[in-house]
Design a protein around this nucleic acid. Structure first.
Lengths: 237, 237
DNA sequence: ACTTCCCTACTACCATACAAGTCAACGGAG
DNA sequence: CTCCGTTGACTTGTATGGTAGTAGGGAAGT
C-alpha cells in the first residue's frame, strides 16, 4: 500500500530555509485539513523521494508532529496519522472555555473602543466568506480569538492552546456541514456586544456558550466517521 | 568553553529502549531543576560522546525540547538553554488559574468523599517532606493538582498544561527560598475544605489565590537573577 | 486442515560522513 | 596602532549506509 500523495506537490520548499520545519508545517496543515486521513500511513522514504530530500529531515518533522499529537510512530512498524482522541477533544475544549471565559471577563472589565471596532470589522469579514470558503472562515475565526487574547495581554497564553485548537479544527474539517457558521458568527457578535457594554457575566456566558457549540457537532461526526476517532464511548479501544 | 557536565553521569541509558526519548527526559529534568542554567551552551557532539551515542539521537532530543520551549537552536551557531520568558510565565499562570478554577468548581458541585480522603492523605505527605526536600515537594504538588484534574474527568486537559508547568517549575527551582511551602500546603487544605463543603465560589477563589502565589515570588526572583529571564520589564530584549 | 517455523521485505533507529554557515583570532596593509 | 580580509576551528543541517526489530506469507511438519 502506497502513500496517499494527492496534490502534495502544490507545496514548494524554499531551498534557503531548513527543510525539516517546512515539512513540519506542510504535513501539519494537511493532517488538520483532513487531507491526510487518520490511520493513513506516512512513509519516510517515500516522502523524502517526493521532496527530493533525505530521510533525516522527514524524520525530524515526524518527531515534532508526534509531540503535537498528530502522528504516531510505531517503532519498526510504521508512522501513521493519529486518530482523533475523543476525550482529548473534550478536555481541550474544556481548557479553552475556561481560559477564554477569563479573557473576556478581563476585556469586559475595561472595554476598549478601538478593540470593539477591530472585532466588529473582523466579524464583517467572517460574514463575507461565511459559506463560500470554510477553510478561510476557520482562519478568520482563529484570528478573532487570538485578537481577544492579545487584547487581554495574554497572547502567549494563546500559543499554549495551539495543540488544542489543532485537534478541534481537525474535527471541523472532517465535516464542516455540522457547523452552523452563521450561528457561530452571531455568537461572536454577542461576545463583542457584551464586552462593549461591560457586562462581565454576560460576556463570560456568551463565550462559554460559543465554545460549547462543538459539543453539538462532535457526537454526530463521531457517529458518521467512527474510524477517525479513538477513546470514544462507542469505540473505546 | 566547554559544556557544564556536572554529575551528568548519574543518569544511565537503558540500551533496550530508544536513546532519543531517554535523553529528552534527562535533559528536560536537568533544565527544569536549573541544573543546566539558562543561556548555557549544549554541544551536540559533546553530549553524544559523553553518552557514547551518535549525534543524531541527541539532536532529536534537542528538537523536542525546542518544542517545549526549553531549548533554543540557533542554526550554525549553537544550542542554548532558553532563558525564561517572563511574560510566558505570567500567561501560563493565567491559563492554569482559569482551568483549575473551573476544575474545582466542578468538583465542589458534587464532592466525592473518597476524593477528599485521598487529597487529605496527599496533603499529609506534603507536610512530611515540606522543608526537607523541595524537589520532592514539587512532585507531590504536581500529583495533587493532577489528582484534581483526574477527578474532574479532564485528566488529558492536564497534559496540555505540561509545558506551562515546566516553565513555572523552573522559576521555583531557581530560588526555592522565595516559596513559603507551609503556606502552599495550607492553601491546598483550604481548597479541599471548600470542595468538601460544596462551596463552589469559595473553592474557585481558594484555587485562584493559590495559583496567584507565584506572582509574589516571581518579581523578586527576576530581580535576584535577571540574567535568567527575558521579556521582563527590566530586561526587555 | 491446522499449526509452527523461517524467510523476505519492509520499518524505525542509529552511526557516520559531508556540506554550509558562523565567528573569532590572526596577520598583513595602510 | 588601526583596520580589514583571510583562515580555520567550531556550529547545525543534510545525506546515506547499516542494524535490529516487526509483519506476513509460504513451506514444512503435525
Amino acid at each position: 500500500m502506497n502513500l496517499v500523495l494527492g496534490d502534495l506537490n502544490r507545496w514548494r520548499l524554499d531551498p534557503l530555509q531548513a527543510v525539516a520545519p517546512q515539512l513540519r508545517l506542510i504535513l501539519r496543515s494537511r493532517i488538520i485539513r483532513n487531507d491526510l486521513r487518520p490511520m493513513s500511513r506516512l512513509s519516510e522514504p517515500e516522502l523524502a523521494k517526493h521532496y527530493a530530500v533525505s530521510r533525516q529531515p522527514v524524520r525530524e518533522a515526524f518527531i515534532t508532529l508526534v509531540n503535537e499529537g498528530l502522528l504516531e510512530i510505531r517503532p519498526q512498524r510504521g508512522t501513521f496519522v493519529k486518530r482523533i482522541d475523543y476525550q482529548s477533544v473534550l478536555d481541550g475544549r474544556f481548557v479553552r472555555e475556561a481560559v477564554e471565559a477569563d479573557i473576556v471577563r478581563l476585556l469586559a472589565a475595561n472595554p476598549d473602543p478601538a478593540l470593539i471596532r477591530e472585532l466588529r470589522h473582523q466579524i464583517a469579514g467572517q460574514a463575507d466568506v461565511a459559506r463560500r470558503n470554510f477553510s478561510h472562515f476557520i482562519e478568520l475565526d482563529e484570528a478573532f480569538h487570538r485578537t481577544l487574547a492579545h487584547a487581554a495581554g495574554v497572547e502567549s497564553a494563546w500559543e499554549y492552546l495551539n495543540a488544542i485548537k489543532s485537534q478541534m479544527d481537525r474535527v471541523r474539517f472532517i465535516s464542516n456541514e455540522e457547523f452552523p457558521v452563521a450561528r457561530l458568527i452571531k455568537q461572536h457578535e454577542t461576545v463583542v456586544d457584551t464586552i462593549e457594554r461591560s457586562d462581565r457575566d454576560a460576556a463570560e456566558q456568551a463565550m462559554r456558550a460559543h465554545l460549547r457549540e462543538i459539543l453539538n457537532a462532535l457526537p454526530k461526526i463521531q457517529t458518521l466517521y467512527p474510524d477517525y476517532f479513538e477513546g470514544s464511548p462507542s469505540n473505546p479501544d
